Simulated assay, not measured.
Amino acid sequence: MDSFMQKAAIDFFIAFGVVFGGSMLAGIGSVFVLTPPAVIMLDTASRLKIWAIVAAVGGTIDPLRVIESNMLEGHLHPVALQLGYIACAFLGAHMGTELIRWFCKGAV
């Protein structure tokens, strides 16, 4: 498997894990404070989505800097790679959110 596919897969699963794991742990915590777990899990999943993408692609402004500097110089290959990484992270975060929605479907 080439380097792009490896990093894209890792970004996907990091974003998925942040949303899914964070939402599940929020649901467990909500039991301790006597609030409905499904409501807390759904709210947490939607709020964690953007942070999962940020965490997966590096957590800093560097991916945007790579896009900006290479776009201005006319090098489109690094720009396409960064956009691909961001898209894979988005897909992972979105799938994590949808899985939490599926788990909580009958509870809300």
Rank of each mutant, 00 (worst) to 15 (best):
I28L: 14
V39D: 11
F4R: 02
L91T: 09
K49S: 07
V33L: 08
L76C: 00
L83N: 03
S46V: 12
I53V: 15
I50M: 11
V57Y: 06
V79Q: 05
L91D: 02
A15R: 08
P37C: 00
L64E: 00
M41D: 07
A15I: 06
G96I: 06
H94D: 10
T60W: 04
V108Q: 09
A9P: 01
C104N: 10
G58W: 05
G96D: 07
G22Y: 08
A55L: 12
W102Q: 08
V66G: 05
P37T: 07
K105N: 11
G106W: 07
H94W: 14
L42E: 12
A26F: 08
V19F: 01
I67T: 04
L48V: 01
E98Y: 11
L64F: 15
I50P: 00
A38F: 03
A15Q: 04
H94I: 09
G21P: 05
V57I: 15
G74Y: 04
T35N: 06
F90M: 15
L34R: 10
T97I: 00
L91M: 15
R65D: 01
V57P: 06
P63W: 02
G17H: 05
M71W: 02
I86E: 07
Q6A: 13
T35L: 14
T35S: 12
F20Y: 11
I61C: 03
L72E: 14
D11N: 15
F12M: 05
K7A: 12
A8K: 07
Q6P: 00
K49Y: 00
I61H: 03
I67G: 02
F13L: 11
E68Q: 10
P36V: 05
R101G: 09
I100R: 02
G22K: 09
S46C: 00
G92N: 07
L91F: 14
D2N: 15
F103M: 14
T44C: 10
P63S: 01
S30M: 10
I86Y: 01
E68I: 13
R101N: 15
K49T: 11
V79R: 07
D2E: 10
S46Q: 10
P78G: 06
A15E: 07
V79Y: 06
A80K: 13
S3T: 12
T44L: 02
A89L: 05
A93N: 09
P78L: 05
A15L: 05
L76M: 15
Y85R: 11
A107T: 06
G59W: 04
G17E: 03
Q6H: 04
T35W: 02
S30F: 09
F20Q: 00
G92Y: 09
E98A: 11
H77R: 10
V39W: 03
I40R: 02
G59Y: 02
G106N: 13
A80I: 15
V33Y: 03
W102V: 07
R65K: 12
W102E: 01
E73A: 15
S23V: 02
M5H: 12
E73Y: 06
G58L: 03
F90I: 12
F4L: 12
L48Q: 04
Q82V: 15
I50C: 00
